[in-house]
Write a protein that binds this DNA or RNA. Structure first.
Lengths: 216, 216
DNA sequence: TAGATTGTTAATCGATTAACAATC
DNA sequence: TAGATTGTTAATCGATTAACAATC
């Protein structure tokens, strides 16, 4: 089915297209040209057409793209109608925030379990889900076969836990642990979210902007 | 001072170098070659040497790089010794998690104020900082001149608030609002963190990996 | 000195942009 | 039909990789 391998930059733009098309739909815009969409998103029209054509021609010459249709198609490509089982490990501040703040369901994911090693938290509810002790992780996975693990744990624990989770059948990690996981298996995906790196990038850019101006 | 404009991919790798070098320092590794560092980080040795040479020659032929020295230099480039004033707007789950979870100080940032529009939260303490009502934002900025605003607010409020913050002197946004800010001013920096997009990217990659295997 | 590894230039690769024929 | 805009090919640009002379 998949015509070719899609490049990473294209993949990373897909959720953004999906968001903008959703907004357009709410604004009752029915059709849009690559040029208009490009202006909105700060991309080039060429790039948008190239991106969409990785997956096939969704447009209509002389007309543009049907917003609703395109939104639906990209959603399908991203798998928003799936129900991928997700567990979250580490119900500290960040873990709880992610569990409650983010709408997993509308993104094709279903948060089915939250675990924490701190026995004091056990039973406390987050996002309608009880926090379970780590001792129940193995049996839970054997029973419910989650595919994705969200790691909101300290960096020292990350690698070992990840290895264990792979043995329990986890195929994807959403990793907030400030540690770059080393995964041997080629069919396990890791998406790192390094919040600290992001903040430092921002700081650097502000910083270097100041320097540039001094010299100009 | 700045010899040239540094490309975005290089900038985004800097915090990661900084992290790995910090780890090496903790492991008491004193010297490292670009080849060894490349193997650790999953990069190429060439790329590492190219990256470092954007800022000048930090290595020594026939020897490699001094870990401690390089760590210090990259830290300086990233501005970890600065004390950039940061305020956080929106003390919901995510805002509180970021305020307490992330070490701003070690990254050259100083969190000096937390604001929320919900009057019920006013006075509650997060990360040793009291949550202040939005009404006090203007006077606080006039007094303390924060440079960066962390936006942990709903998407509808983001654009308007950002514009107002710019008028109060904010030069950088760390934006968690799921909304792509439109900023006219060229000397204001935006770093978007779209957690939802990140999750969808992970889901897509897992998804498409499955498809590939079916066909192979 | 010989060996190792950098700094730097040249070659390659991939992604973005431009152009235009196809067609709605 | 004429106008608009796509899908797609070719050209350009930028980033990564390879190669090697400089040098510690």
């Amino acid at each position: 089915m998949s015509k070719q391998v899609i490049s990473t930059p294209v993949i990373r733009r897909l959720p953004r297209y999906y968001r903008f098309l959703g907004d357009l739909e709410l604004e009752k815009v029915e059709r849009i040209s690559s040029r208009e969409l490009a202006a909105r998103m700060g991309l080039s029209a060429s790039q948008i057409r190239q991106d969409f054509n990785c997956f096939g021609g969704f447009g209509q010459q002389g007309y543009g793209y049907h917003v609703g249709e395109l939104h639906e198609i990209i959603g399908r490509i991203l798998g928003v109608h799936e129900q991928t089982g997700v567990i979250l490990i580490g119900a500290g501040n960040l873990g709880k925030a992610i569990a409650s703040h983010l709408d997993f369901d509308s993104r094709g994911c279903r948060l089915i379990g939250v675990f924490d090693s701190n026995p004091l938290l056990a039973g406390t509810s987050t996002h309608d889900l009880p926090i379970m002790p780590m001792e129940t992780l193995d049996s839970f996975c054997a029973m419910h076969h989650p595919q994705v693990a969200v790691l909101c744990i300290p960096k020292d624990a990350a690698q070992q836990l990840a290895d264990h989770l792979i043995s329990l059948g986890i195929k994807g990690f959403w990793n907030f642990s400030h540690f770059d996981l080393k995964i041997a298996s080629p069919d396990v995906i890791v998406e790192n979210v390094h919040l600290g790196d992001s903040l430092m990038t921002l700081a650097y850019c502000m910083h270097s902007l100041g320097e540039d101006e001094e010299n100009s």
